[in-house]
Amino acid sequence: MLLSELLDLPVRGRDGEDLGRVVDVRFRRGARRGEYEGELELIALIVSPHSRMSMYGYERGRVNRPAVIATWIAWIHRRSRVIPWECVQRVDEDAIALGVAVPVIPLNIRRSISDSD
């Protein structure tokens, strides 16, 4: 499967509710193999209920200037969240279906995680 086929797919919760669209896919870099990069393991999906636009790195906490643009992009992606891959039950051509109830993990690391859905 191609990464581009995962991106922009709608994500549906266990009860069919619309959680947003996949805007990015998070991997974990495995240990390096000598001179080479290690394996990339898929661990989570980044899902945004509001916008499919590219985020320019602002929401990952690395870029926060100029303030005007950072604020605007933060507002566009205000409820973006991280959905662990373990919660995904199936991937279809038109949507991704979760199999379990998933806790809300806000994408913005400056927001704390609460345990309610």
Binding site: Y56, G57, R62, V63, R65, P66, A67, I69
Partner: peptide
């Protein structure tokens, strides 16, 4: 946007006045 991104610019990102 790029001139503000530390990944590309390191510590040479735009200062406040330039921004």
């Amino acid at each position: 946007v790029v001139a503000n991104d530390p990944e590309y610019m390191g510590d040479e990102v735009n200062g406040r006045m330039r921004n």
